[in-house]
Design a protein around this nucleic acid. Sequence first.
DNA 1: GATATTGCGGATCTTTTTAGTCCGAGATAG
DNA 2: CTATCTCGGACTAAAAAGATCCGCAATATC
Lengths: 155, 155
Amino acid sequence: MPVSTEWLLHCATTLAQLDPGTTASAAQLAQYYDLPAAYLAKQLQALVRSGALAATTGPRGGFRLARPASEITLLDIVEAVDGAASPYECREIRQQGRGALSPEECRNTCVLAEKMADAHEAWRRSLAATSLADVLATLPPSAPERTRRRMAGAT
Amino acid sequence: MPVSTEWLLHCATTLAQLDPGTTASAAQLAQYYDLPAAYLAKQLQALVRSGALAATTGPRGGFRLARPASEITLLDIVEAVDGAASPYECREIRQQGRGALSPEECRNTCVLAEKMADAHEAWRRSLAATSLADVLATLPPSAPERTRRRMAGAT
DNA sequence: GATATTGCGGATCTTTTTAGTCCGAGATAG
DNA sequence: CTATCTCGGACTAAAAAGATCCGCAATATC
C-alpha cells in the first residue's frame, strides 16, 4: 500500500475542516504536511475522479469535498488511491495439472477464493463504517479553526 | 499479493488430505498443480519457517502439516507467504510541515492509523476464523481419497 | 482582453517487488 | 559406506509499481 494513502487520508481530513466553499490548492496541502507537491497533486486527481473531491482550476482554485463529510468514508478514499480490486486473485489452479478438477466440479467458486473474498469484504466494511465526520468528531473542538488559520497563510 | 499465495493455500489443503505421516515432495505438488517446481519449493520453505509445515529431507522425504489441520488457519498460511505486516504504515505526517502538531498532542495514536489498523484486524480475524479442517469439510467426501490417489502416482 | 495561477493528463525514469533458476548441505535407503 | 534424493538458501532476470516531470486546458483577476 503506497505512502500516498496516508497523505490523502490526512488531506481529506484537512479539507473537511475548511469552511464550505473554501478550497485548498495542492501546493497548500503539500506545504501543510511537507510533502512532494507534484506527486501529491497527481494523487489528488484520483480522488477527484472517484467523486470524493471536487476541483476548480484557475487562480484561487483548488480542492474541496464533493459531498458532506458524513458521506465520505475512509473506504472511499483508500479505494480511490489504491484501487478497489481485491489483493488476492484466484487463477483457478485447481483446474490445472495432474490433480485438475473437472469443469463440472468447478461450478461453484473455489472455497479458498471465497474465504479470501470474505476477508476482503470484512476489511472494506470496517473502513466503510467510519466517515470523515466521525474522524472530525474525535478531534478537539479547537482543531478546525486552527487548521483553517494555518492553511490560510500558505502559498 | 503474489500468485504464490494461491499456490500455497491449495498445497496446504492438499497436504491436509494425506494420511498422517505421509509426505509430498515439492516436485509432486508442483506436478499436481502444474507449477514451476523450483519456485514452489522456495515458497514452501516460508511455510516451514513459520511453523505451519514440517519438512524431511532425503529419499522419500517431503512436506507435511506440522500441526493438526484444525489448528492451521488460512491466516497462518497467508501471513507466512505475504508477511504479517499491515499494508498501511503510519509515518506521522501530522507532525510535519506547516500544520505540524505538537508532540504532546500526538501522545495518543493518530485516529486514521487506528482505523486502518482496525480494518486490518478485521481482515485477520476473518482469515483466522477458517482452518484447513474447515476447508476440508466443504469438499465432497470422496475428495481426500482421490487426492491421495492422484498424488501417489507422481514423480 | 491579456496574464497569471491552478488543475489535468500523458510520457518518462527509478525503485521495489516478484518470478524464476541454480547449486550446495544433509539425510535416508540400500 | 555410498549413491541418490530431498530440502535449503543464495543468486539472477523481469515486471510492476512508485515517483517525477513537462506541456495543455481552464478560469479568475487586473
